[in-house]
């Protein structure tokens, strides 16, 4: 559950990030994003961010959970932003690996 609390905002931020031309190029080498894909990435990103408080609330209740969520958003965004310039593909791959691992560990 702890890993999921980090994985959901990380995956959400990565999706939003890939919907931006500059970062899309950084990771995939193409600057152009098909409009459908862009819409899909944005939607997925926002849905993941919307779902991201749930593991935190499950871990720590309303009060502690909302503080935990803010901290997780910061940690996820820092992890993504600081790893992008050094290992863009790994950073993007983590967005798939972390939630999967989190789901396995939480179940």
């Amino acid at each position: 559950m702890m890993l999921l609390a980090l994985a959901l905002p990380y995956a959400g931020f990565t999706a939003l990030c890939l919907a931006m031309e500059r970062h899309h190029e950084q990771v995939l080498g193409r600057r152009r994003i098909a409009p459908g894909l862009r819409r899909l990435l944005r939607l997925a990103g926002w849905l993941l961010l919307l779902a991201s408080p749930l593991p935190c609330l499950a871990l720590a209740g309303w009060g502690g959970g909302s503080v935990l969520w803010c901290g997780m958003l910061t940690a996820a965004a820092l992890l993504l932003t600081l790893s992008l310039p050094y290992a863009p593909r790994l950073a993007a791959a983590l967005a798939l690996a972390l939630p999967a691992l989190g789901l396995v560990l939480a179940s």
Partner: peptide, 12 residues
Amino acid sequence: AGPLLRGLFLLS
């Protein structure tokens, strides 16, 4: 803050 949240406070 428990250990996890304390870690996030430290990071912030």
